[in-house]
Protein backbone atom coordinates (compact mmCIF):
# COMPACT_ATOMS: atom_id res chain seq x y z
CA UNK A 1 0.00 0.00 0.00
CA UNK A 2 1.04 3.61 -0.59
CA UNK A 3 3.08 5.33 2.09
CA UNK A 4 2.18 8.66 3.70
CA UNK A 5 5.27 10.14 2.04
CA UNK A 6 4.03 9.21 -1.44
CA UNK A 7 0.61 10.69 -0.65
CA UNK A 8 2.28 13.85 0.71
CA UNK A 9 4.16 14.25 -2.58
CA UNK A 10 0.96 13.82 -4.58
CA UNK A 11 -0.84 16.34 -2.34
CA UNK A 12 1.98 18.80 -3.03
CA UNK A 13 1.51 18.48 -6.79
CA UNK A 14 -2.02 19.90 -6.54
CA UNK A 15 -1.51 22.24 -3.56
CA UNK A 16 -2.41 25.87 -4.12
CA UNK A 17 -4.49 25.24 -7.24
CA UNK A 18 -7.43 27.63 -7.28
CA UNK A 19 -10.72 26.07 -8.32
CA UNK A 20 -13.95 28.10 -8.81
CA UNK A 21 -15.73 28.30 -5.48
CA UNK A 22 -12.86 26.44 -3.85
CA UNK A 23 -14.63 23.10 -4.34
CA UNK A 24 -12.48 20.00 -4.74
CA UNK A 25 -11.82 18.68 -8.21
CA UNK A 26 -13.78 15.43 -8.44
CA UNK A 27 -10.64 13.89 -9.92
CA UNK A 28 -8.18 14.08 -7.04
CA UNK A 29 -5.73 11.15 -7.19
CA UNK A 30 -4.38 11.39 -3.59
CA UNK A 31 -7.90 10.36 -2.47
CA UNK A 32 -7.77 6.93 -4.03
CA UNK A 33 -11.52 6.24 -4.03
CA UNK A 34 -12.09 9.20 -6.37
CA UNK A 35 -10.32 7.40 -9.23
CA UNK A 36 -13.28 5.46 -10.62
CA UNK A 37 -15.96 7.68 -9.17
CA UNK A 38 -15.60 10.96 -11.06
CA UNK A 39 -17.05 11.80 -14.48
CA UNK A 40 -14.70 12.08 -17.46
CA UNK A 41 -17.23 13.82 -19.72
CA UNK A 42 -17.77 17.56 -19.35
CA UNK A 43 -20.80 18.53 -17.27
CA UNK A 44 -23.74 19.89 -19.27
CA UNK A 45 -24.59 23.50 -18.47
CA UNK A 46 -28.25 24.20 -17.66
CA UNK A 47 -29.52 27.80 -17.68
CA UNK A 48 -33.30 27.19 -17.77
CA UNK A 49 -35.05 29.72 -15.47
CA UNK A 50 -37.98 27.29 -15.13
CA UNK A 51 -35.78 24.44 -13.91
CA UNK A 52 -37.21 22.41 -11.04
CA UNK A 53 -33.74 22.56 -9.47
CA UNK A 54 -34.16 26.28 -8.83
CA UNK A 55 -36.75 25.30 -6.20
CA UNK A 56 -36.13 23.00 -3.28
CA UNK A 57 -37.66 20.53 -0.85
CA UNK A 58 -39.44 22.01 2.16
CA UNK A 59 -39.15 20.85 5.75
CA UNK A 60 -41.26 21.94 8.67
CA UNK A 61 -41.94 21.75 12.37
CA UNK A 62 -43.11 18.14 12.05
CA UNK A 63 -39.82 17.05 10.49
CA UNK A 64 -37.47 18.20 13.24
CA UNK A 65 -37.93 18.73 16.98
CA UNK A 66 -35.71 20.94 19.11
CA UNK A 67 -34.25 17.83 20.79
CA UNK A 68 -32.93 16.51 17.47
CA UNK A 69 -30.19 19.15 17.61
CA UNK A 70 -28.86 17.83 20.94
CA UNK A 71 -26.77 14.72 20.29
CA UNK A 72 -25.90 14.42 23.99
CA UNK A 73 -29.51 13.65 25.01
CA UNK A 74 -30.43 10.77 22.74
CA UNK A 75 -29.74 8.06 25.33
CA UNK A 76 -30.31 7.53 29.03
CA UNK A 77 -26.78 8.56 30.03
CA UNK A 78 -24.27 11.25 29.13
CA UNK A 79 -21.86 10.51 26.27
CA UNK A 80 -18.12 10.57 27.00
CA UNK A 81 -15.97 13.35 25.59
CA UNK A 82 -15.67 17.07 25.33
CA UNK A 83 -19.14 18.64 25.09
CA UNK A 84 -19.34 21.29 22.36
CA UNK A 85 -21.84 23.77 20.96
CA UNK A 86 -21.64 24.19 17.17
CA UNK A 87 -23.48 27.23 15.86
CA UNK A 88 -23.51 28.99 12.54
CA UNK A 89 -25.48 30.82 9.91
CA UNK A 90 -26.44 29.44 6.51
CA UNK A 91 -26.58 32.01 3.71
CA UNK A 92 -26.33 32.14 -0.04
CA UNK A 93 -23.44 33.92 -1.73
CA UNK A 94 -25.32 37.20 -1.60
CA UNK A 95 -25.46 36.91 2.18
CA UNK A 96 -29.20 36.23 2.24
CA UNK A 97 -30.20 33.88 5.07
CA UNK A 98 -31.45 30.39 4.23
CA UNK A 99 -34.55 30.20 6.45
CA UNK A 100 -36.33 27.16 7.81
CA UNK A 101 -34.09 24.69 6.01
CA UNK A 102 -32.80 21.32 7.06
CA UNK A 103 -29.26 20.91 8.40
CA UNK A 104 -28.20 17.33 9.15
CA UNK A 105 -24.99 16.19 10.84
CA UNK A 106 -23.33 12.86 11.58
CA UNK A 107 -20.03 12.13 13.26
CA UNK A 108 -17.77 9.72 15.14
CA UNK A 109 -17.77 9.57 18.94
CA UNK A 110 -15.03 11.01 21.16
CA UNK A 111 -12.87 7.92 20.54
CA UNK A 112 -13.16 8.28 16.75
CA UNK A 113 -15.62 5.42 16.25
CA UNK A 114 -18.76 5.60 14.12
CA UNK A 115 -21.92 3.67 14.94
CA UNK A 116 -21.59 1.89 11.61
CA UNK A 117 -21.02 -1.82 11.06
CA UNK A 118 -18.49 -1.20 8.31
CA UNK A 119 -16.25 0.61 10.74
CA UNK A 120 -14.41 -1.89 12.92
CA UNK A 121 -11.24 -0.19 14.09
CA UNK A 122 -10.51 -0.98 17.72
CA UNK A 123 -11.88 2.11 19.43
CA UNK A 124 -14.81 1.82 21.83
CA UNK A 125 -18.43 2.51 20.94
CA UNK A 126 -20.24 4.76 23.39
CA UNK A 127 -23.64 3.39 24.44
CA UNK A 128 -24.74 6.96 25.10
CA UNK A 129 -23.78 8.41 21.75
CA UNK A 130 -25.12 7.74 18.27
CA UNK A 131 -23.80 10.81 16.48
CA UNK A 132 -26.61 11.94 14.17
CA UNK A 133 -28.58 15.19 14.53
CA UNK A 134 -30.91 17.51 12.64
CA UNK A 135 -31.94 21.14 12.92
CA UNK A 136 -33.96 23.71 11.01
CA UNK A 137 -32.41 27.12 10.43
CA UNK A 138 -34.25 30.03 12.06
CA UNK A 139 -35.47 33.26 10.45
CA UNK A 140 -31.89 34.58 10.27
CA UNK A 141 -30.49 31.33 8.90
CA UNK A 142 -28.94 30.23 12.21
CA UNK A 143 -28.61 26.66 13.40
CA UNK A 144 -27.14 25.24 16.59
CA UNK A 145 -26.12 21.76 17.75
CA UNK A 146 -24.99 20.39 21.08
CA UNK A 147 -22.71 17.40 20.66
CA UNK A 148 -19.31 16.04 21.71
CA UNK A 149 -16.03 16.64 19.94
CA UNK A 150 -15.40 13.71 17.58
CA UNK A 151 -12.04 11.94 17.64
CA UNK A 152 -9.74 11.40 14.65
CA UNK A 153 -9.93 7.94 13.11
CA UNK A 154 -7.84 5.72 10.85
CA UNK A 155 -8.92 4.74 7.33
CA UNK A 156 -7.65 2.67 4.43
CA UNK A 157 -6.47 5.23 1.86
CA UNK A 158 -2.78 4.53 2.55
CA UNK A 159 -0.50 3.28 5.34
CA UNK A 160 -1.19 5.15 8.58
CA UNK A 161 -3.97 7.29 7.09
CA UNK A 162 -5.87 9.24 9.77
CA UNK A 163 -8.78 11.60 9.26
CA UNK A 164 -8.64 14.88 11.18
CA UNK A 165 -11.57 15.22 13.59
CA UNK A 166 -14.64 16.36 11.65
CA UNK A 167 -18.41 16.59 11.66
CA UNK A 168 -20.24 15.74 8.42
CA UNK A 169 -22.82 18.35 7.37
CA UNK A 170 -25.68 18.06 4.88
CA UNK A 171 -27.40 21.36 4.05
CA UNK A 172 -30.29 22.45 1.84
CA UNK A 173 -30.50 25.94 0.38
CA UNK A 174 -33.24 27.98 -1.20
CA UNK A 175 -32.74 25.93 -4.38
CA UNK A 176 -31.85 22.30 -5.05
CA UNK A 177 -28.85 23.66 -7.00
CA UNK A 178 -27.45 24.90 -3.67
CA UNK A 179 -27.36 21.45 -2.08
CA UNK A 180 -24.19 20.91 -0.07
CA UNK A 181 -22.57 18.04 1.76
CA UNK A 182 -19.36 18.99 3.52
CA UNK A 183 -17.24 18.38 6.60
CA UNK A 184 -16.51 20.80 9.44
CA UNK A 185 -13.04 20.62 10.95
CA UNK A 186 -11.57 21.95 14.21
CA UNK A 187 -8.93 24.69 14.39
CA UNK A 188 -5.27 23.69 14.65
CA UNK A 189 -5.69 19.99 13.85
CA UNK A 190 -2.21 18.50 13.27
CA UNK A 191 -3.64 16.02 10.74
CA UNK A 192 -4.69 18.60 8.09
CA UNK A 193 -1.42 18.32 6.18
CA UNK A 194 -1.65 14.53 5.88
CA UNK A 195 -5.31 14.15 4.92
CA UNK A 196 -6.12 13.89 1.21
CA UNK A 197 -9.82 14.61 1.78
CA UNK A 198 -9.12 17.91 3.53
CA UNK A 199 -6.35 18.66 1.01
CA UNK A 200 -8.68 17.96 -1.93
CA UNK A 201 -9.66 21.58 -1.29
CA UNK A 202 -6.42 22.87 -2.76
CA UNK A 203 -6.85 26.63 -2.27
CA UNK A 204 -5.61 27.56 1.23
CA UNK A 205 -8.26 30.29 1.56
CA UNK A 206 -10.98 27.76 0.75
CA UNK A 207 -9.51 25.28 3.26
CA UNK A 208 -10.01 27.91 5.97
CA UNK A 209 -13.74 27.96 5.18
CA UNK A 210 -13.97 24.31 6.28
CA UNK A 211 -12.51 25.02 9.72
CA UNK A 212 -14.81 26.14 12.52
CA UNK A 213 -13.65 29.02 14.71
CA UNK A 214 -13.37 28.60 18.46
CA UNK A 215 -15.76 31.23 19.82
CA UNK A 216 -15.51 31.85 23.53
CA UNK A 217 -18.76 33.78 23.44
CA UNK A 218 -20.52 30.58 22.36
CA UNK A 219 -18.99 28.52 25.13
CA UNK A 220 -21.52 27.80 27.85
CA UNK A 221 -20.28 28.17 31.42
CA UNK A 222 -19.72 24.81 33.12
CA UNK A 223 -21.20 23.02 30.09
CA UNK A 224 -19.63 23.25 26.62
CA UNK A 225 -16.99 24.82 24.36
CA UNK A 226 -18.35 26.88 21.49
CA UNK A 227 -17.47 26.69 17.82
CA UNK A 228 -18.79 28.82 14.99
CA UNK A 229 -19.24 27.31 11.53
CA UNK A 230 -20.95 29.58 9.02
CA UNK A 231 -21.99 28.00 5.74
CA UNK A 232 -22.22 29.79 2.39
CA UNK A 233 -24.11 27.91 -0.30
CA UNK A 234 -23.09 28.04 -3.94
CA UNK A 235 -25.39 27.97 -6.95
CA UNK A 236 -28.38 29.88 -8.31
CA UNK A 237 -31.98 29.86 -7.11
CA UNK A 238 -35.28 31.10 -8.49
CA UNK A 239 -35.04 34.18 -6.24
CA UNK A 240 -31.69 35.08 -7.83
CA UNK A 241 -33.44 35.26 -11.17
CA UNK A 242 -36.34 37.28 -9.74
CA UNK A 243 -34.24 39.75 -7.78
CA UNK A 244 -31.36 40.13 -10.22
CA UNK A 245 -33.53 40.72 -13.25
CA UNK A 246 -35.87 43.34 -11.78
Amino acid sequence: MTSQQEIDEEILEYAGVRVPGGHPSRDYPPYRSSGLRHPRQALTVVTDPEAVELYTPVFGAGDVTALDADLTRQHSGEPLGERITVTGRVTDRAGRPVRGQLVEIWQANAAGRYVHRQEQHPAPLDPNFTGAGRALTDAEGNYSFTTIKPGPYPWGNHVNAWRPAHIHFSVFGTAFTQRLVTQMYFPGDPLFAFDPIFQSVTDPAAQQRLIAAYDHGLSVSNFSLGFRFDIVLDGPSATYFEEDHQ
Binding site: Y31, G95, A108, Y114, G131, R209, D230, V232
Partner: peptide
Protein backbone atom coordinates in the same frame (compact mmCIF):
# COMPACT_ATOMS: atom_id res chain seq x y z
CA UNK B 1 -26.10 40.31 -5.60
CA UNK B 2 -25.23 42.66 -2.75
CA UNK B 3 -22.27 40.63 -1.51
CA UNK B 4 -20.23 37.95 -3.16
CA UNK B 5 -19.31 35.59 -0.37
CA UNK B 6 -17.01 32.69 -1.14
CA UNK B 7 -18.86 29.38 -0.78
CA UNK B 8 -18.16 26.63 1.71
CA UNK B 9 -16.36 23.91 -0.27
CA UNK B 10 -17.88 20.50 -0.76
CA UNK B 11 -16.47 17.35 0.84
CA UNK B 12 -17.31 13.71 0.23
CA UNK B 13 -20.27 12.18 2.05
CA UNK B 14 -17.82 9.41 3.07
CA UNK B 15 -18.77 5.82 3.85
CA UNK B 16 -20.58 6.27 7.18
CA UNK B 17 -23.66 8.37 6.32
CA UNK B 18 -25.93 5.33 6.73
CA UNK B 19 -27.20 6.26 10.20
CA UNK B 20 -27.30 10.00 9.48
CA UNK B 21 -28.99 10.60 6.15
CA UNK B 22 -31.44 7.81 5.20
Amino acid sequence: MSQNLEPTPSQTVGPFFGYGLP
